[in-house]
């Protein structure tokens, strides 16, 4: 993805200085307060990847900077939508409960100024219903090319039959807010939103999340992952759950092994999976108020595993 070079004001400088920001979309003149800021995530049966922390921390930093209302929207209904088997649904339901429990714990441990909202609750609001009805009237042909890029090729025909309901829910959710934070691939939802309601949503994309424990050849043979990364909040994205640090699932020893066997390079034109984890541990350290910075592994233990009580895994 080409970094968007949009913004020139003070806020833009703040974004640029926040190491994990990868790109942005929209006009960043923010005229009213409070700004409604959000990050949305779905859940799978494998648990919460460490990469979610990057989004929670960045959301919290932005909340402080903008005096915004910051919300994590947990897409509970969307999490079930694409998985039909009863057993899998049960797994996801259980995962969803665990995710919310862990998210509450993270908010408490790091004192994050963010609130949680379930998508199912959102769907019940009049504001959402009205907006969704408006979006349903939009000529699909206009936004289909963008929405198609958010769907796996083998599921495209099925989604067409469903008139892209899942993707349009995601677009509508975005348009309920003023600003969102998301992974780079979500720009396609946001560009569709921009076509429907020009100028409504501002989006900030964080660096793509890359799997750990993979060598250089993996990224050369998976250009799509190199460009957009895996889905940060779904551990099973691209079936790479064994190559992610999953909070509460991955032991510290395994996390260490993943970091030590990961591709990492000084070249700025490559992916940086280890530096990305380091950035997450740095943010965790700052939120805990620990002054002295250490190496990635020490910070992973001291600022994430220990405070969240994950050491015994």
């Amino acid at each position: 993805m080409k970094r968007q070079k949009v913004i020139t004001n003070e806020f833009a400088r703040f974004l640029r200085e926040s190491g994990g920001v990868y790109g942005a979309l929209g006009d960043f003149k923010l005229n009213h307060k409070p700004i409604r800021l959000f990050y949305g995530e779905t859940v799978d049966e494998f648990g919460m990847p460490i990469d979610c922390l990057k989004y929670y921390f960045t959301l919290s930093n932005l909340q402080k900077k903008l005096s915004a209302v910051a919300t994590v929207v947990v897409a509970d209904t969307a999490s079930f939508m694409n998985d039909s088997t009863v057993q899998k649904r049960e797994h996801i339901r259980s995962s969803l409960n665990s995710r919310i429990e862990l998210l509450n714990k993270i908010i408490a441990v790091y004192r994050l100024p963010i609130k949680i909202r379930l998508m199912s609750e959102q769907f019940m609001t009049d504001e959402y219903k009205k907006l969704r009805a408006e979006i349903a009237k939009v000529d699909l042909k206009v936004i289909e090319p963008l929405l198609s890029k958010t769907i796996l090729p083998n599921k495209l025909a099925e989604e067409r039959k469903k008139k892209f309901g899942y993707a349009l829910d995601a677009v509508a959710t975005g348009l309920l807010f003023d600003m969102k934070i998301g992974p780079p691939r979500e720009r396609f939802y946001d560009e569709a939103g921009e076509k429907i309601m020009p100028g409504k949503l501002k989006s900030i994309y964080l660096t793509p999340t890359q799997p750990l424990g993979k060598n250089f050849a993996f990224f050369l043979t998976h250009p799509e992952i190199e460009e957009y990364g895996v889905t940060p909040y779904k551990a099973g994205s691209n079936k790479l759950q064994d190559f992610r640090i999953i909070l509460g699932e991955t032991s510290f020893i395994r996390a260490k092994e993943l970091l030590e066997t990961s591709f990492e390079s000084e070249n700025p034109d490559t992916v940086h999976p280890v530096k990305d984890i380091h950035a997450i541990t740095e943010m965790a350290r700052e939120f805990l108020g620990v002054k002295i910075s250490k190496d990635t592994l020490s910070q992973l233990r001291e600022c994430i595993y220990t405070p969240l009580g994950l050491e015994g895994i």
Partner: peptide, 10 residues
């Protein structure tokens, strides 16, 4: 050339 590099890496 990427599949060859994958073999080299392995």
């Amino acid at each position: 050339f990427e599949p060859i590099l994958e073999l080299i890496a392995d």
